[in-house]
Design a protein around this nucleic acid. Structure first.
Length: 503
RNA sequence: GAUCCAGUAGCUCAGGGGUAGAGCAUUUGACUUUUAAUCAAAGGGUCGUAGGUUCAAAUCCUACCUGGAUCACCA
């Protein structure tokens, strides 16, 4: 398929293209004066006043053809939907011969007048037709039927997931309903941006290629800069550079962009994904919780027109305020054990009692994480702020003002999945240095995801960062929630795929 | 990374040791309001790749590739 092996249908299209050219048809013209959309014509056609659409100019891709000798019907699709075209030989004696050589997939421009057919479908009667692009590949367009209840039945839909992801352009043409997901995605992002802009916070761009990576626990992608002859990393988070900008005097900055983590892929993870991070000076994580619940309610209303979101057979209520619960209270609630301040031996014992498999030598953090994932997370269906994490889990968060051993951090869980992560940001450079050095020791001990020490970031903190609250939101997971998609691949135009072997 | 399932015509699928099938799509012919258009005829395949077993493999075996699901890892 990648090679130049054409099947009979493709060969025939090339022949037709050449025949059309010989007949003087330009198969790839430069422009077309497209005035109307398919949807506009359907929405605005009036049986009482058909003359208001007596001069229309539309264009789109042919999605079906019904030829009846000296007259034909076809449907074309543009960005807004599909519309039926009627073409009669007597109207266009010359072009009708060319029309016979057009195929499903070709893009045409049509000028004519709107009318309603005998069977009731608003259509355009062709006065003039122009080929705008000859398609040489065969589209897997399915047949569609409208049953007596007006429901659309699609026959033999193109649903091979591998091909749909690898050739998303085909998927978009043929399964056009998926466009709704991506349109919503764009709306979510633009509404989020507007929400922040309206508050006066500044959208910024920070480096994607970085000499050091940081801001999250993850393995990076490594690349090489030839001119400088140095290895560089693709960013795994936005945090450290955005904090530098708060140090620099901006009081509210945010960035929406791709980050890259060199890890496995599954329904919830893609190696590159979109992250939003925002930092607001003089605020703490309590303030941030209010901002987050307001943002989520606002986005649900503006994108879905409701705060009751149907997802995976459940109804998620994004009406603010969200539940707030301290992490160790949740442990108590869902396991019956108080896990705070436990020794390693005690935690291992409890893990065994809970039938959580723990390998010998597992750290407290791993055990806590494990129990949280098995016993707490699956219960956090409705939006829940999980507050106050152990300090070891959060090297960039500020120590809790009253609870020893904890930091002021919350994560927002919805439908058992982490949706957002926020702190009162650590701005004591001495503490930050100590925590990064602890990370470095973990790293030396074999933890490949531990953070590296970024001296320049530490210097920035020494210069001084005001009290600040920061937040990260995984855009893809938010889009999944608001569009009802259960796989991250269905909210990405081009999800990561293994390369096809070229033969 | 582990396990299971899948890969056959452009699409959706059947077939499961003995000549490769269907519907749609395509081609030819008929048809000037059809809409899963209809009617008649025709063409189209290295059965994911590579080995093996066998007189004979799409079919059985092994390995590999790609995808999906579940689990593990992972914010």
């Amino acid at each position: 398929m990648l090679e130049n092996t054409k099947n009979d249908q493709e060969m025939r299209r090339i022949e037709e293209l050449e025949l059309l050219e010989k007949a003087g048809v330009q198969p790839f013209p430069y422009n077309f004066d497209k005035i109307h959309t398919c949807k506009f014509i359907i929405d605005n056609f009036s049986d009482d006043n058909p003359e208001i659409l007596s001069e229309v100019a539309i264009a789109g891709r042919i999605s079906s053809i019904r030829r009846m000798g000296k007259a034909s019907f076809c449907h074309i699709n543009d960005e807004t939907g599909k519309l039926q075209i009627y073409i009669k030989r007597d109207d266009l004696p010359d072009f009708y011969e060319h029309f016979k050589m057009l195929d499903i997939g070709d893009i045409i421009g049509v000028k004519g007048y709107a009318f309603r057919t005998k069977t009731g479908e608003v259509s355009v009667h062709t006065r003039q037709m122009q080929l705008l692009c000859k398609s040489l590949a065969i589209l897997p367009i399915p047949k569609e039927e409208i049953d007596e209840n007006g429901n659309k039945i699609i026959h033999d839909a193109f649903e091979d997931k591998e091909l749909r992801y690898r050739r998303r352009y085909l998927d978009l043409i043929v399964n056009s309903q998926i466009k709704e997901v991506f349109i919503k995605r764009a709306k979510i992002i633009s509404n989020m941006r507007k929400y922040f802009d309206d508050k006066g916070w500044l959208e910024v761009e920070t480096p994607i290629l970085q000499p050091l990576y940081g801001g999250a626990s993850a393995r990076p992608f490594i690349t090489h800069h030839n001119a400088l002859d140095v290895d560089q990393y693709l960013r795994i988070a936005l945090e450290l550079y955005l904090k530098r900008l708060i140090v620099g005097g901006f009081e509210g900055v945010y960035e929406i962009g791709k980050v890259f983590r060199n890890e496995g892929m599954d329904k919830k993870h893609n190696p590159e994904f979109s992250l939003m991070e925002i930092y607001v000076a003089y605020k703490d994580y309590f303030w941030m919780m209010e901002m987050v619940e307001d943002l989520y309610s606002h986005l649900a209303l503006s994108v879905c027109n409701t705060t009751d979101i149907e997802f995976d057979g459940k109804v998620i209520n994004l009406q603010k305020p969200f539940r707030r619960a301290k992490m160790f209270d949740l442990y108590k609630e869902y396991t019956g054990y108080d896990l705070k301040g436990r020794t390693n031996a005690e935690l291992i014992d409890i893990a065994h009692k809970l039938k959580v498999e723990i390998e010998p030598g597992t750290t407290n953090m791993k055990i806590l994480d494990e129990i949280f994932g098995s016993f707490v997370e699956p219960n956090l269906i409705q939006p829940t702020f999980v507050m106050d994490y152990p300090i070891e889990m959060s090297p960039l968060a500020k120590i809790h003002r009253s609870d020893e051993g904890l930091v002021e951090r919350f994560e927002l869980f919805i439908n058992g999945a982490e949706m957002a992560n926020a702190f009162s940001e650590l701005n004591d450079s001495r503490d930050q240095r100590a925590r990064l050095e602890e990370q470095a020791r973990n790293r030396a001990a074999g933890d490949e995801e531990a953070m590296v020490v970024d001296e320049d970031f530490l210097y920035a903190l020494e210069v001084g960062m005001p009290p600040t609250s920061g937040l990260g939101i995984g855009i893809d997971r938010l889009v999944m929630l608001l569009t009802g998609q259960t796989s991250i691949r269905d909210v990405l135009f081009f999800p990561q795929m293994k390369p096809e072997i070229s033969r």
